[in-house]
Amino acid sequence: MDAFLDAGFMRHAVLAGLFAGVACAVAGVFAVLMRLTFIGVCLAHAAFAGGLVGLLFGWDPLAGALVASLAAAAVIGPVADRGELSPDTAVGVVFSAMLGLAIFCLGLLPGPKTAGLNLFWGNILTVSRRDLWLLGTVAVAASLAIIAFFKEIQAVACHRRIARASGLPATAIFYGILFFTGLTVTACLPSVGGLLVYSLLINPAAAAYQLTYRLGRLFFLAALFGVVSCEGGLLIAWKLDVPAGASIVLVSSLLFLAAVACSPKKKAGSRAEG
Protein backbone atom coordinates (compact mmCIF):
# COMPACT_ATOMS: atom_id res chain seq x y z
CA MET A 1 0.00 0.00 0.00
CA ASP A 2 2.89 2.34 0.78
CA ALA A 3 4.27 1.78 -2.70
CA PHE A 4 0.78 2.40 -4.06
CA LEU A 5 0.69 5.86 -2.49
CA ASP A 6 4.40 6.67 -2.90
CA ALA A 7 4.03 8.02 -6.40
CA GLY A 8 2.70 11.59 -6.53
CA PHE A 9 0.46 10.84 -9.50
CA MET A 10 -1.10 7.98 -7.53
CA ARG A 11 -1.93 10.24 -4.59
CA HIS A 12 -3.61 12.59 -7.05
CA ALA A 13 -5.48 9.66 -8.56
CA VAL A 14 -6.67 8.47 -5.14
CA LEU A 15 -7.97 11.96 -4.31
CA ALA A 16 -9.60 12.26 -7.73
CA GLY A 17 -11.28 8.89 -7.16
CA LEU A 18 -12.57 10.06 -3.80
CA PHE A 19 -14.04 13.29 -5.17
CA ALA A 20 -15.35 11.80 -8.42
CA GLY A 21 -16.89 8.89 -6.50
CA VAL A 22 -18.81 11.25 -4.22
CA ALA A 23 -19.88 13.80 -6.86
CA CYS A 24 -20.96 11.21 -9.44
CA ALA A 25 -22.83 9.16 -6.86
CA VAL A 26 -24.79 12.19 -5.67
CA ALA A 27 -25.73 13.17 -9.24
CA GLY A 28 -26.52 9.51 -9.91
CA VAL A 29 -28.97 9.34 -7.01
CA PHE A 30 -30.96 12.18 -8.60
CA ALA A 31 -30.85 10.49 -12.00
CA VAL A 32 -32.01 7.14 -10.61
CA LEU A 33 -34.70 8.65 -8.35
CA MET A 34 -36.15 10.92 -11.02
CA ARG A 35 -35.82 8.24 -13.73
CA LEU A 36 -33.49 10.37 -15.79
CA THR A 37 -30.66 7.87 -16.11
CA PHE A 38 -30.14 8.48 -19.82
CA ILE A 39 -29.65 12.17 -19.14
CA GLY A 40 -26.28 11.26 -17.61
CA VAL A 41 -25.02 9.67 -20.81
CA CYS A 42 -26.43 12.57 -22.84
CA LEU A 43 -24.71 15.23 -20.71
CA ALA A 44 -21.49 13.20 -20.74
CA HIS A 45 -21.45 13.17 -24.55
CA ALA A 46 -22.37 16.85 -24.66
CA ALA A 47 -19.44 17.62 -22.36
CA PHE A 48 -17.18 15.49 -24.56
CA ALA A 49 -18.37 17.33 -27.69
CA GLY A 50 -17.91 20.71 -25.97
CA GLY A 51 -14.43 19.74 -24.85
CA LEU A 52 -13.52 18.81 -28.43
CA VAL A 53 -14.92 22.10 -29.75
CA GLY A 54 -12.71 23.83 -27.17
CA LEU A 55 -9.66 21.89 -28.35
CA LEU A 56 -10.46 22.61 -31.98
CA PHE A 57 -10.63 26.37 -31.43
CA GLY A 58 -7.79 26.51 -28.93
CA TRP A 59 -10.00 27.28 -25.91
CA ASP A 60 -9.92 25.55 -22.57
CA PRO A 61 -11.60 22.18 -23.24
CA LEU A 62 -13.17 22.14 -19.77
CA ALA A 63 -14.87 25.48 -20.41
CA GLY A 64 -16.23 24.11 -23.69
CA ALA A 65 -17.37 20.96 -21.90
CA LEU A 66 -19.15 22.96 -19.21
CA VAL A 67 -20.96 25.19 -21.70
CA ALA A 68 -22.03 22.24 -23.86
CA SER A 69 -23.26 20.08 -20.95
CA LEU A 70 -25.21 22.99 -19.43
CA ALA A 71 -26.65 23.86 -22.85
CA ALA A 72 -27.74 20.24 -23.30
CA ALA A 73 -29.36 20.30 -19.85
CA ALA A 74 -31.05 23.60 -20.73
CA VAL A 75 -32.53 22.01 -23.87
CA ILE A 76 -33.56 18.71 -22.33
CA GLY A 77 -35.10 20.18 -19.15
CA PRO A 78 -37.79 22.42 -20.67
CA VAL A 79 -38.61 20.02 -23.50
CA ALA A 80 -39.10 17.13 -21.07
CA ASP A 81 -40.92 19.44 -18.66
CA ARG A 82 -43.50 20.80 -21.07
CA GLY A 83 -44.34 17.38 -22.45
CA GLU A 84 -43.93 18.58 -26.04
CA LEU A 85 -41.74 15.54 -26.63
CA SER A 86 -41.33 12.53 -24.38
CA PRO A 87 -38.21 12.93 -22.21
CA ASP A 88 -36.70 9.84 -23.88
CA THR A 89 -37.12 11.39 -27.32
CA ALA A 90 -35.65 14.74 -26.21
CA VAL A 91 -32.66 13.05 -24.60
CA GLY A 92 -32.21 10.73 -27.59
CA VAL A 93 -32.18 13.61 -30.09
CA VAL A 94 -29.74 15.72 -28.04
CA PHE A 95 -27.56 12.66 -27.39
CA SER A 96 -27.25 11.75 -31.07
CA ALA A 97 -26.61 15.39 -32.03
CA MET A 98 -23.85 15.65 -29.43
CA LEU A 99 -22.31 12.36 -30.50
CA GLY A 100 -22.34 13.54 -34.11
CA LEU A 101 -20.75 16.86 -33.13
CA ALA A 102 -18.08 15.06 -31.09
CA ILE A 103 -17.10 12.72 -33.91
CA PHE A 104 -17.19 15.63 -36.38
CA CYS A 105 -14.82 17.67 -34.19
CA LEU A 106 -12.59 14.64 -33.59
CA GLY A 107 -12.25 14.28 -37.34
CA LEU A 108 -11.30 17.95 -37.72
CA LEU A 109 -8.65 17.88 -34.97
CA PRO A 110 -5.23 18.19 -36.61
CA GLY A 111 -2.45 15.70 -35.88
CA PRO A 112 -2.71 12.90 -33.34
CA LYS A 113 -6.07 12.85 -31.58
CA THR A 114 -4.61 12.02 -28.14
CA ALA A 115 -5.92 15.13 -26.38
CA GLY A 116 -9.40 14.56 -27.81
CA LEU A 117 -9.45 10.86 -27.00
CA ASN A 118 -8.27 11.62 -23.46
CA LEU A 119 -11.52 13.52 -22.97
CA PHE A 120 -13.40 10.41 -24.08
CA TRP A 121 -11.52 7.84 -22.03
CA GLY A 122 -10.12 10.12 -19.34
CA ASN A 123 -6.99 9.29 -17.43
CA ILE A 124 -7.21 9.32 -13.69
CA LEU A 125 -3.46 8.69 -13.42
CA THR A 126 -2.58 11.97 -15.11
CA VAL A 127 -5.08 14.21 -13.34
CA SER A 128 -3.74 17.72 -12.74
CA ARG A 129 -3.86 19.83 -9.58
CA ARG A 130 -6.45 22.13 -11.21
CA ASP A 131 -8.66 19.17 -12.12
CA LEU A 132 -8.39 17.97 -8.53
CA TRP A 133 -9.48 21.33 -7.19
CA LEU A 134 -12.44 21.40 -9.56
CA LEU A 135 -13.51 17.86 -8.63
CA GLY A 136 -13.05 18.55 -4.91
CA THR A 137 -15.08 21.75 -5.10
CA VAL A 138 -17.93 20.00 -6.91
CA ALA A 139 -17.93 17.08 -4.45
CA VAL A 140 -17.88 19.32 -1.37
CA ALA A 141 -20.51 21.70 -2.81
CA ALA A 142 -22.76 18.74 -3.63
CA SER A 143 -22.42 17.30 -0.13
CA LEU A 144 -23.16 20.67 1.50
CA ALA A 145 -26.14 21.30 -0.78
CA ILE A 146 -27.64 17.94 0.14
CA ILE A 147 -27.27 18.66 3.85
CA ALA A 148 -28.68 22.19 3.52
CA PHE A 149 -31.59 21.39 1.21
CA PHE A 150 -32.30 17.79 2.15
CA LYS A 151 -36.01 18.21 2.78
CA GLU A 152 -36.62 20.13 -0.45
CA ILE A 153 -34.53 17.65 -2.45
CA GLN A 154 -36.41 14.73 -0.95
CA ALA A 155 -39.80 16.26 -1.76
CA VAL A 156 -38.86 17.13 -5.34
CA ALA A 157 -36.94 13.93 -6.12
CA CYS A 158 -39.71 11.66 -4.79
CA HIS A 159 -42.84 13.49 -6.01
CA ARG A 160 -41.98 16.56 -8.00
CA ARG A 161 -45.44 17.62 -9.21
CA ILE A 162 -46.88 17.39 -5.73
CA ALA A 163 -43.93 19.35 -4.33
CA ARG A 164 -44.61 22.06 -6.89
CA ALA A 165 -48.32 22.15 -6.07
CA SER A 166 -47.49 22.49 -2.36
CA GLY A 167 -45.52 25.68 -3.00
CA LEU A 168 -41.95 24.41 -3.29
CA PRO A 169 -39.94 25.82 -6.23
CA ALA A 170 -39.75 22.35 -7.74
CA THR A 171 -38.88 23.50 -11.24
CA ALA A 172 -35.96 25.60 -9.99
CA ILE A 173 -34.71 22.66 -7.91
CA PHE A 174 -35.04 20.34 -10.93
CA TYR A 175 -32.96 22.70 -13.07
CA GLY A 176 -30.49 23.02 -10.22
CA ILE A 177 -30.11 19.24 -10.25
CA LEU A 178 -29.57 19.22 -14.03
CA PHE A 179 -27.02 22.04 -13.70
CA PHE A 180 -25.18 20.14 -10.98
CA THR A 181 -25.17 16.97 -13.12
CA GLY A 182 -23.65 18.92 -16.00
CA LEU A 183 -21.03 20.38 -13.67
CA THR A 184 -20.17 16.94 -12.27
CA VAL A 185 -19.80 15.41 -15.71
CA THR A 186 -17.52 18.28 -16.77
CA ALA A 187 -15.37 18.01 -13.64
CA CYS A 188 -14.99 14.27 -14.23
CA LEU A 189 -14.04 14.59 -17.90
CA PRO A 190 -10.22 14.75 -17.49
CA SER A 191 -10.04 11.95 -14.94
CA VAL A 192 -12.90 9.55 -15.68
CA GLY A 193 -13.67 10.52 -19.28
CA GLY A 194 -16.88 11.21 -21.16
CA LEU A 195 -17.60 7.54 -21.76
CA LEU A 196 -16.89 6.06 -18.35
CA VAL A 197 -18.44 8.85 -16.29
CA TYR A 198 -21.87 7.48 -17.15
CA SER A 199 -21.08 4.20 -15.38
CA LEU A 200 -19.83 6.06 -12.35
CA LEU A 201 -23.01 8.13 -12.30
CA ILE A 202 -25.43 5.26 -12.50
CA ASN A 203 -23.87 2.09 -11.04
CA PRO A 204 -23.17 3.25 -7.46
CA ALA A 205 -26.54 5.02 -7.17
CA ALA A 206 -28.40 2.07 -8.70
CA ALA A 207 -26.59 -0.31 -6.33
CA ALA A 208 -27.46 1.81 -3.29
CA TYR A 209 -31.07 2.08 -4.49
CA GLN A 210 -31.39 -1.69 -4.09
CA LEU A 211 -30.45 -1.58 -0.44
CA THR A 212 -32.35 1.13 1.43
CA TYR A 213 -35.67 2.92 1.77
CA ARG A 214 -34.07 5.96 3.44
CA LEU A 215 -32.89 8.81 1.23
CA GLY A 216 -30.10 9.85 3.60
CA ARG A 217 -28.70 6.32 3.57
CA LEU A 218 -29.13 6.18 -0.20
CA PHE A 219 -26.85 9.20 -0.66
CA PHE A 220 -24.35 7.79 1.83
CA LEU A 221 -24.27 4.29 0.32
CA ALA A 222 -24.07 5.64 -3.24
CA ALA A 223 -21.12 7.86 -2.29
CA LEU A 224 -19.48 4.92 -0.48
CA PHE A 225 -19.93 2.65 -3.52
CA GLY A 226 -18.65 5.41 -5.80
CA VAL A 227 -15.49 5.84 -3.73
CA VAL A 228 -14.99 2.06 -3.35
CA SER A 229 -15.37 1.67 -7.14
CA CYS A 230 -12.76 4.34 -7.83
CA GLU A 231 -10.22 3.29 -5.23
CA GLY A 232 -10.80 -0.43 -5.82
CA GLY A 233 -10.42 0.06 -9.56
CA LEU A 234 -7.22 2.03 -9.03
CA LEU A 235 -5.79 -0.67 -6.78
CA ILE A 236 -6.62 -3.37 -9.32
CA ALA A 237 -5.07 -1.28 -12.10
CA TRP A 238 -1.93 -0.82 -9.97
CA LYS A 239 -1.63 -4.49 -9.05
CA LEU A 240 -2.50 -6.02 -12.43
CA ASP A 241 -1.20 -3.24 -14.68
CA VAL A 242 -4.54 -2.87 -16.47
CA PRO A 243 -6.41 0.32 -17.55
CA ALA A 244 -7.64 2.24 -14.47
CA GLY A 245 -10.85 3.67 -15.96
CA ALA A 246 -12.07 0.29 -17.15
CA SER A 247 -11.22 -1.29 -13.77
CA ILE A 248 -13.25 1.40 -11.99
CA VAL A 249 -16.28 0.74 -14.18
CA LEU A 250 -15.98 -3.02 -13.73
CA VAL A 251 -15.76 -2.71 -9.94
CA SER A 252 -18.85 -0.45 -9.91
CA SER A 253 -20.70 -2.98 -12.09
CA LEU A 254 -19.76 -5.82 -9.74
CA LEU A 255 -20.95 -3.77 -6.77
CA PHE A 256 -24.28 -3.27 -8.53
CA LEU A 257 -24.65 -7.00 -9.18
CA ALA A 258 -23.82 -7.77 -5.55
CA ALA A 259 -26.37 -5.19 -4.36
CA VAL A 260 -29.07 -6.69 -6.58
CA ALA A 261 -28.26 -10.15 -5.23
CA CYS A 262 -28.53 -8.92 -1.62
CA SER A 263 -31.43 -6.51 -2.19
CA PRO A 264 -34.24 -6.60 0.37
CA LYS A 265 -36.35 -4.80 -2.23
CA LYS A 266 -36.55 -7.71 -4.66
CA LYS A 267 -39.92 -8.76 -3.22
CA ALA A 268 -41.25 -5.19 -3.41
CA GLY A 269 -40.16 -4.98 -7.04
CA SER A 270 -41.74 -8.24 -8.08
CA ARG A 271 -44.93 -7.26 -6.26
CA ALA A 272 -45.09 -4.06 -8.29
CA GLU A 273 -44.59 -5.93 -11.53
CA GLY A 274 -47.20 -8.51 -10.64
Binding site: C158, T212, K265
Partner: peptide, 11 residues
Amino acid sequence: DPRLPISVLES
Protein backbone atom coordinates in the same frame (compact mmCIF):
# COMPACT_ATOMS: atom_id res chain seq x y z
CA ASP B 1 -42.26 3.03 -7.31
CA PRO B 2 -42.39 0.45 -4.50
CA ARG B 3 -38.65 1.02 -3.98
CA LEU B 4 -38.94 4.80 -3.54
CA PRO B 5 -36.75 5.84 -0.59
CA ILE B 6 -39.33 7.80 1.36
CA SER B 7 -41.46 6.71 4.30
CA VAL B 8 -45.14 7.51 4.65
CA LEU B 9 -44.39 9.97 7.46
CA GLU B 10 -41.65 11.73 5.44
CA SER B 11 -43.96 11.98 2.44
